[in-house]
């Protein structure tokens, strides 16, 4: 997917990490690394490939933490409804 046809709205004093290949700005360096790997896989140098792998691993870790929270929320919804149905 080409990103070049997007419109951007970058706040004046915000940190910006801009993609060298398509110019898309990101708020975090890690997102830029992920973007490199996902949208420009054939154009990267070795450093960028390493950065992508690292960012991808970090992302897996934080997704794991998110999944636990989501599971907790699901269980909470289930039991709250179960209780209410038992009482009503």
């Amino acid at each position: 997917m080409t990103q070049s046809d997007h419109a951007y709205d970058v706040p004046a004093d915000a940190p910006v990490f801009e993609c060298d290949y398509c110019g898309r700005p990101f708020a975090r360096e890690r997102w830029l690394a992920l973007h490199h790997g996902l949208d420009h896989p054939n154009e990267l140098d070795d450093d960028e490939v390493t950065a992508f792998r690292k960012a991808h691993e970090d992302e897996e870790d934080s997704l794991g933490a998110f999944r636990l929270q989501a599971l907790g929320a699901l269980v909470a919804i289930y039991f709250v409804l179960l209780m209410i149905y038992a009482l009503v």
């Binding site: 997704l63 999944r67 989501a70 699901l74 919804i77 289930y78 409804l81």
Partner: peptide, 21 residues
């Protein structure tokens, strides 16, 4: 309760969709 169940079903399915990464 009927309305909250419907709302909860939608909320829960968002959480379920978020497991598909």
């Amino acid at each position: 309760l009927f309305l909250s169940t419907g709302g909860a079903a939608v909320g829960a399915s968002f959480l379920l969709a978020s497991f598909v990464t």
